[in-house]
Design a protein around this nucleic acid. Structure first.
Lengths: 355, 355
DNA sequence: CTGAAAGCGCTTACAG
DNA sequence: CTGAAAGCGCTTACAG
């Protein structure tokens, strides 16, 4: 404070900024201890005598001190922030996961930094660069297009949690959901209602969730002694538009079917509209099952039977795993199991419900 | 570098971190100039001779230097990040706005920091504290519960852009959408189809968008020479559940109606389900109009006629306004006008379309 | 046009 | 248990 220019600068800043920023140094001076001691108390880094601790706590409260995370980040190399690579910040599917992450991280004093990967590996790589330059302490990747190798490489730099795939690497934890089992459940449900001609609208088969859901459909069919019929399987890409197109193709193909299982809810919604346009009633004429249990599935017409995908929990788990990695602990995970939610878009074959 | 402990520390860090971090100082040394000069070139802060600039550019490229935003934030007081207070990170309504903000900010080298206000003033205030402690350069607030005074107060500290309300304050720009006109358009559409008994499901009337939409409904009615009938107006709170409940109350009230205008799409979806449950067909028996034009409105059954609310544009505009404030310019705004999107949930009275 | 130096607000070995 | 001091990687008056 004996540098005149410094004083001038500080004065100007205070004038602009309104309330003068309280610094750790001011707390230290006011409590009669060194800055190091205040820092140690803040971080629980060392044992401090009770009287000093009390004095510091009092000073912090009195001055209304809030540590500056930017300075902390520079000095300590930890920013208390974790990057979250999602595919689209406005995705109806990932929304719940983002919320779960935000809640869990927030409770531990960490802030999430959300970035959108736009479903391309190039963008995702750029996202991770941005996050690293912002010095996040770790990265959570929701699915995405990055290769396992790329992910393992970034795990060499900082802890990584990835969802939607199975892989093993040091400093990385992968959290997958049992898509196979979910699809099996959905198909089994239709079979148990007496359906035998069950069409399937596939998701993106380049991706594991798309592949697994197809595999589950097929496994359930075969377990019931039915043949897998390629003519009943329509390609799709997880969008409503592709679900709509799939149904049109299916109907035009003149292949007989009494039920449709779409590999996600968005395609099921598209399929529902397609059936509506072709004057087929759900479920009286065709039973329809989705996958994911989006918030909007409850209010679709009719309310959609679907496989509940606990994205919120998945987000919480991913955040918890990250927190554990950051604390140097070995993450312990209990993955949520798939569960079928029966609503009104399915009914027994030959016993159409009256609307 | 003549401090042994410093050398040791750096070495350890490099070993852990994989690729050694390239610093501005290394660039300066390598280019034979001072750190100040490199900084000036990076920031365009001063005119620099061409040969030095070339040397520095070359060194930056050769070493792969990326400036550390954390250090920049500490030293310069600017973090190139802007806080975004949204109500829920997974809101189907704000999603598009978040995306617009992310895109526009990203193109200018800024990163958004998304936080969720949970629709309560307390949370929002806490969000703004968090953002300020993270030293964001400005804050964008999407609607929210904060009072105008509270917003004006934070605008004294840093630039603020707020959507969903009209207000004036220094260092703050408010971006509103013409909810009144939108509601007028929607109601007018139903009137022009011959409907006279038009029910209205209101949104949250404590909030300006809720109030304005009700006002627009009423104004259109009165302009057509019709009386405003309280019995046709059902309370709601912008959720699907409240739309569903409103329709049930409406039907049970035995009030005659041939059309429903819901103050947002989510309530319209709930209303649609309510009508479906009571065996009323849309639009053959009842025409239904929403407000917002959510992504899912296109695939609802039937596809929903609604007022397009350009949230994506609104997000881009908000981000642009923030960028202009940050640059010390006076924001110039061209607000997008409401526009009716006619789909399949409305039809002429007395001329029911065959499904 | 350019450099030396101080400073941003913390953390962390080091040395008691 | 605790302090003095250096350092994190930049920016910015100040003084040429």
């Amino acid at each position: 404070m004996n540098d005149p220019s410094a004083v001038k600068r500080k004065a100007r800043r205070t004038a602009e900024g309104g309330a003068a920023k309280v610094t750790l140094e001011m707390v230290a001076a006011s409590a009669g201890v060194s800055a190091a001691t205040v820092s140690r108390i803040l971080n629980g880094t060392a044992i401090v005598s009770n009287d000093k601790r009390a004095a510091v706590d009092e000073a912090i409260a009195r001055l209304g001190f809030v540590p500056n995370p930017v300075a902390r980040g520079l000095a300590g190399g930890r920013t208390l922030s974790v990057g979250v690579v999602t595919q689209a910040i406005d995705s109806p599917f990932y929304g719940g996961a983002l919320r779960g992450i935000e809640d869990t991280l927030g409770a531990a004093g960490y802030s999430p930094l959300f970035v959108s990967g736009q479903w391309t590996a190039v963008h995702e790589a750029r996202c991770i660069d941005t996050l690293r330059s912002r010095r996040v302490d770790g990265v959570i990747v929701l699915t995405g297009r990055l290769t396992d190798a790329a992910l393992a490489a970034t795990a060499r730099e900082l802890p990584v949690v990835v969802t939607g795939r199975m892989m093993k690497a040091p400093n990385l934890v992968a959290l997958d959901f049992d898509n196979f089992e979910g699809a099996r459940l959905a198909t089994h449900h239709l079979l148990s209602l007496g359906h035998r001609r069950i069409a399937f609208i596939a998701g993106d088969l380049k991706h594991s969730d798309g592949k697994e859901r197809l595999r589950g459909y097929r496994a359930a069919l075969e377990a019931a002694g039915l043949r897998y019929e390629p003519g009943l399987v329509m390609p799709g890409n997880f969008t409503e538009a592709s679900g709509l197109a799939a149904v049109e193709r299916l109907i035009d193909s003149r292949e007989a079917f009494t039920a449709i299982f779409a590999a996600n809810d968005q395609m099921a919604f598209g399929a529902g509209l397609g059936l509506h346009r072709r004057k087929l009633r759900v479920p009286a004429d065709v039973s329809l099952v989705g996958f994911d249990d989006l918030a909007s599935a409850v209010y679709s017409i009719p309310p959609l039977t679907t496989v509940h995908h606990p994205v919120g929990e998945l987000g919480q788990l991913a955040a918890q795993a990250m927190l554990q990695l950051l604390a140097g602990e070995a993450p312990t995970l209990a993955l949520p199991a798939p569960r079928l939610v029966v609503r009104e878009s399915t009914c027994e074959l030959g016993v159409p419900r009256r609307r």
